[in-house]
Design a protein around this nucleic acid. Sequence first.
DNA 1: GTCTATAAAGTGATAGAC
DNA 2: GTCTATCACTTTATAGAC
Lengths: 209, 209
Amino acid sequence: MDGFPVNSSGSTKERILGAAELLFAQRGFDGASLRQLTAAAGVNLAAVNYHFGSKEKLVEEVFRRRLDALNESRLVALAKVAGAPDTTLEDVLEAYIRPALELSHDNSGALFMRVLARAFAEHDDSLRQFLSTNYGHVMRQFTAEFARLLPQLSKPELYWRIDLVTGALTHAMSGFGMIQRKGDVSEHAHREQTVQHLVRFAVAGLSHP
Amino acid sequence: MDGFPVNSSGSTKERILGAAELLFAQRGFDGASLRQLTAAAGVNLAAVNYHFGSKEKLVEEVFRRRLDALNESRLVALAKVAGAPDTTLEDVLEAYIRPALELSHDNSGALFMRVLARAFAEHDDSLRQFLSTNYGHVMRQFTAEFARLLPQLSKPELYWRIDLVTGALTHAMSGFGMIQRKGDVSEHAHREQTVQHLVRFAVAGLSHP
DNA sequence: GTCTATAAAGTGATAGAC
DNA sequence: GTCTATCACTTTATAGAC
């Protein structure tokens, strides 16, 4: 019943990664078995261990494939505005949000944001360790810029607000891509609208008195 | 290694529910097996099926045990302020937030908020169905009151904001109880401080121009 | 690099003794 | 109501043929 190949293009490795993204989003890391996953990818069961070594390594590779590019985009966008005297909170938040919504442009990118939200809610130590080691510097750079733009907030107060905003954005972006958009609104316009939505919400949450 | 009884007080049913809350919070619904769970509860493996019928029914019972009381408290608090001419957004948000933080007062309550955040991130259809059927009316009553207090917002705009706020609050409340609180701050003061924090954030997120 | 076959362990659930 | 023992299956992982 799980069983006809969903993905039949690309290399075996790519097909496995694509199927893993879909099934991890739908059923979670524990809920999706290697049998369901290889069946959906149209590859042999043994291929996962041959190409990735283990299921856990496959999970990490699913993250690495997207997060390397996503976080690089975020840092490039941040570098364009960080430290400048006329930079606004809006600028910094756009640098964080827009790359994620651009990733959600295609279906598999949107699925990945769902996988990310799951990882965020699960407090799995080994996965948190992996994400913190490989991508922790991104959040630190954004936090430093938020601190510069919100000097009136104490450190604990700032961290509280960033945590709340991150929770809201992660949740929202995991839903983007699945939302019905009206036929008369272009893909591009819809995304810009969503970016503005999230940015305005985050500005309010970070900077309220 | 998973193996010594953690919970040795109360009836068998209560012990199972307590252990389930802990393990579901730590490892998820799929990640926690009935064997780990019954070992932690110090009861026989067959007891789960005898008392609850199946693992899925046990999951539902874990939710029902907490949500019946939590949502009743929320509705009682909402009824005290809903519809009154001088009611503020703060009042309504406190009615939603304070009962959850009071539940987090004890350890197992805090664990449950974590289980709830997990369920929120998993898009499991049967669980969503269960929650919507049994507790959907609570969100509908709160939404109606938000709509009354924010007449300037269109329906889609209001739903967007409520969704974002809910994402932030769910995330935050799943962390509350685990947060270090300073020794010189009383439990009560700490909770009040957190309520004010979340309420102010939510007001800003809902009512920004 | 892909396959079959299988090992070794874990899963939820249940029958039947007490 | 609690126990042991077990069924019927699924899980990840690997050895070895091609």
